[in-house]
């Protein structure tokens, strides 16, 4: 996302007044966490929401490095969720074509 492409947040230099550093806050990828929870893989979605909350709480506390680390973890979880969704979809396709699973009694 474009607003994630700004340089990583650096701690404010010595003597810099307390408050926000000169860079925008890192993304918490909350929208991916919500999409994962509602459309893909709940455990990954729950973990993503935890990391999203950490980004905001660490940033608010002035732990800019920690916020960036949580942001990167949230990004990795978003990526793994997308991969997991794709792999499960392909496995399902293979199992259905092979006749091991038939199409569901309940829809998703």
């Amino acid at each position: 996302m474009s607003y994630d492409q700004y340089p990583p947040a650096a701690p404010p230099p010595a003597g810099f007044p307390s408050g926000q550093p000169a860079t925008p806050p890192p993304s918490n990828y909350l929208v991916f966490a919500i999409l994962t929870t509602l459309f893909c893989c709940l455990p990954l979605g729950v973990a993503s929401i935890v990391f999203a909350a950490q980004v905001n709480s660490k940033w608010a506390m002035g732990d800019y490095q920690g916020a960036l680390e949580s942001s990167n973890k949230a990004k990795q979880f978003a990526m793994w969720s997308a991969i997991a969704g794709f792999v499960v979809g392909v496995l399902y396709g293979i199992l259905i074509v092979a006749g091991i699973l038939n199409f569901g009694f309940w829809t998703s």
Binding site: Y92, F103, G104, F105, W106, T107, S108
Partner: peptide, 13 residues
């Protein structure tokens, strides 16, 4: 998706 057979069941369900 209300008609069975169009989409597979969610794996967790």
């Amino acid at each position: 998706p209300n008609e069975p057979g169009h989409y597979p069941t969610c794996p967790s369900l």
